[in-house]
Amino acid sequence: MISARIWVDIPEAALDAEAGYRRVQRLLDAFRRVVPDLQHWHGGLNTPRQKYVEFFDKEAMLERIDERMKQYAAEFIHLPHGFLIHLDSDTSSKRTPGLFELGYTPTERSIFLDIYRPDEAFGPSAAQVVRDVLTAIVELEEVEYAFVDVRDRVPDKPRPTTYLVSYAAFLHRKALGWMGYVPRRVTADQLPSAAELVQVPGKGTVIVAVNDAFSLANKAHIKQANIVEMELVDLDLLPVTDPSLQ
């Protein structure tokens, strides 16, 4: 597996720099409880000559956030303006297993968290780590839907691909992929093919399709994820993205 990316849909919000910083700080604290090595996060690159800023250097980071917000507002005058940030857990020029990348853009209703080679970094615990990180996001944010896409190399394709692009069960709906979240309580009777269901109190359900490190070269993994997606359609819990294809 090259990477697993958690895609999260959240309500649109035009946050100021302080409010956005507080929200991201809560997420990073929660991630550290899952992966204790996630002690440092870096970002704030708005021009080619700038150096990374440590996220927890609040004054310096807020300056860079404010600078980026002004750049974005000037460049995209017709789009909603507000807090946005991209952070890496390591500033090394070479990507190493276990690298986390976070994108938090509430004006675009989006959070993503990319984990590079989680199977190498976490071994047999890879599914548990991804599940727990996803659950932490759901606990802290008002999540409307989330899924985990996997990017991988497969023998019959000339270049790396993703579950969403090549293997999702439906072209006109969201995917679930390795695992995901729906804002409703779902039971094992309703979703019998899921490997695991995690109830998030007061919210909904984290759904794990495959409880191993997901591989696009493993036909059993693809089939399992497809079946869970079909069961979600029967429950009207897999959102439609293109009504014209229904």
Rank of each mutant, 00 (worst) to 15 (best):
W7S: 12
W7R: 12
V8I: 15
D9F: 08
E12F: 10
E18H: 13
R22Y: 09
V34L: 04
D37E: 15
L38Y: 09
W41S: 02
G44V: 04
T47M: 12
K51V: 13
Y52N: 12
A60V: 06
E67W: 12
E67A: 15
Q71D: 14
E75W: 14
E75M: 15
I77K: 15
I77Y: 15
P80Y: 02
I85Y: 11
H86A: 15
D90M: 10
R95F: 13
P97L: 04
G98T: 03
F100A: 10
F100D: 05
Y104T: 01
T105E: 15
L113D: 08
P118E: 01
A126S: 15
A127I: 02
V138Y: 07
Y145D: 05
A146Y: 05
F147E: 08
D149F: 11
D149G: 13
V150Y: 07
D156S: 11
D156L: 08
D156R: 11
K157R: 14
T161P: 10
S166V: 06
A168H: 08
A168M: 08
A169L: 06
H172C: 09
L176H: 07
G177A: 00
Y181Q: 02
R185M: 05
V186Q: 04
A188S: 11
D189P: 00
D189W: 00
L191T: 03
S193N: 09
A194H: 07
P201V: 00
K203S: 04
V206D: 01
I207P: 00
A209D: 05
F214M: 05
S215P: 05
L216Q: 02
L216N: 03
N218M: 04
N218A: 10
N218S: 10
K219Y: 00
K223S: 09
Q224C: 07
Q224S: 12
A225S: 13
A225I: 06
I227S: 06
E231G: 10
L235S: 07
L235A: 07
D236V: 09
T241S: 09
D242E: 14
